[in-house]
Amino acid sequence: MSMFGQRLKQLRKKRKLTMQEVADYVGVAKSTYAGYESGYRQPTIESIQTIARKLRTSADYLLGLTDYPDPPAEINHNAKEYLNVDKLHWDGVPLEKDDLDLIRHLLERVLRDRTSSKDD
């Protein structure tokens, strides 16, 4: 069985889905999907994307390009927004308002220094 097939089967079982459920979502016969898991068949790129959506993973993970099955949350996060969130913690240790103020100040300083060095 190929890495692709192993990962399909592993994630399908982890998500408690049947082959039929995934096959129906992708729009292929159960036997076709079973062929993907066994390595007997190769899905189209569109099918890989659809399967990844159903299994809540990335196509990169299914294809062996990464070893992280859970895709990262939206990458484009504004740190400033996070520092204004109540109940923020660092590995379970709550950050107090004073902590967050200090972190904000340090990040603003880093950004000021970075932009001033680009101007030179």
Rank of each mutant, 00 (worst) to 15 (best):
M1R: 06
S2E: 12
S2P: 05
M3Q: 08
G5P: 07
Q6M: 08
L8M: 05
Q10D: 05
Q10W: 02
L11F: 01
R12K: 01
K14N: 02
Q20S: 04
Q20Y: 00
E21W: 00
E21R: 00
V22G: 00
A23W: 00
A23P: 01
D24Y: 00
V26G: 01
V28Y: 01
V28G: 02
K30Y: 03
K30M: 15
S31D: 02
S31M: 08
S31N: 05
T32H: 13
A34W: 11
A34V: 05
G35E: 12
G35Q: 11
G35A: 11
G35P: 06
Y36I: 02
G39P: 08
Q42S: 14
P43K: 02
P43Q: 14
T44Y: 08
E46M: 03
E46L: 09
S47I: 01
I48Y: 11
T50C: 08
L55C: 06
R56G: 04
S58K: 03
D60T: 13
Y61C: 12
L62Y: 12
L62W: 07
L62Q: 09
L63V: 10
T66N: 06
Y68F: 09
P69H: 08
P69V: 10
P72Q: 05
P72M: 10
P72C: 03
P72W: 03
A73C: 01
A73H: 03
E74N: 15
N76L: 12
N76D: 15
N76S: 15
H77K: 11
N78C: 14
A79E: 06
A79I: 15
K80M: 13
E81Q: 12
E81A: 14
E81L: 13
Y82K: 10
L83D: 04
D86Q: 06
D86A: 12
L88Q: 08
L88G: 11
L88R: 09
H89S: 13
G92F: 09
V93G: 02
P94E: 15
P94K: 06
P94D: 11
P94G: 05
E96L: 14
K97T: 09
K97L: 14
K97F: 07
K97R: 14
D98W: 03
D98L: 11
L100P: 00
D101F: 01
D101T: 02
L102A: 06
L102F: 07
I103Y: 03
I103T: 06
H105E: 01
L107W: 09
L107K: 04
R112L: 13
D113P: 00
R114D: 10
R114F: 13
T115Y: 07
T115E: 14
T115W: 02
S116D: 11
S116P: 00
S117A: 13
S117C: 11
S117H: 07
D119L: 13
D119H: 10
D120C: 06
